[in-house]
Amino acid sequence: MTNTAISRHGLERRRSQLSDLRRYCADQEQEFEALRARVQGFVSRYVDALGESYLELDALESQLHSATHGLAEALRSSGIDARSPLAPQATALPVLPRLPPGTALPAEPQSGLVELAPPTLKTLYRRAAMRLHPDFAATEIDRSAREQSMMLVNQAYSASNRAQLEVLLLAAGEDPVRVSGSNADALRNWLDRCERLVQGRLRVVQAHMALLTVHPMHRLWLAIAQAEVKGLDPLSVMANRLRSQIGERRQELYIGQRLLPQSNLAQAFLHRRIERMGAAASTN
Rank of each mutant, 00 (worst) to 15 (best):
E195L: 03
H208F: 14
A207P: 06
Q206I: 07
S149D: 10
A172N: 00
Q164K: 15
E147S: 12
M150F: 07
S144F: 04
E195M: 10
R196C: 09
E195W: 01
S182A: 12
S160G: 05
N183G: 10
C194K: 02
S180I: 05
D192R: 12
H208C: 06
S180D: 05
V214I: 12
N189Y: 08
E166W: 01
L170H: 02
T139E: 02
R143V: 06
A171K: 14
R193N: 13
L211F: 05
L212R: 04
A138V: 12
R178N: 11
P176Q: 06
G181S: 09
W190K: 02
A210N: 08
N189D: 15
N154L: 13
A171I: 09
V214L: 04
M209L: 13
L169T: 08
S144T: 10
E195V: 13
A171C: 05
R193I: 12
L191C: 11
M151N: 14
A156L: 06
V177G: 09
T139V: 07
R201G: 04
S149N: 08
S160C: 12
M209R: 14
R193Q: 15
N183Q: 11
Y157K: 03
E140I: 03
A184R: 06
V205F: 03
R146E: 01
S160F: 13
L165C: 03
E195G: 06
V204N: 00
A156M: 07
R143A: 14
V167T: 15
E166R: 10
V198R: 01
E166G: 13
A184T: 04
C194F: 04
E195D: 11
L169S: 02
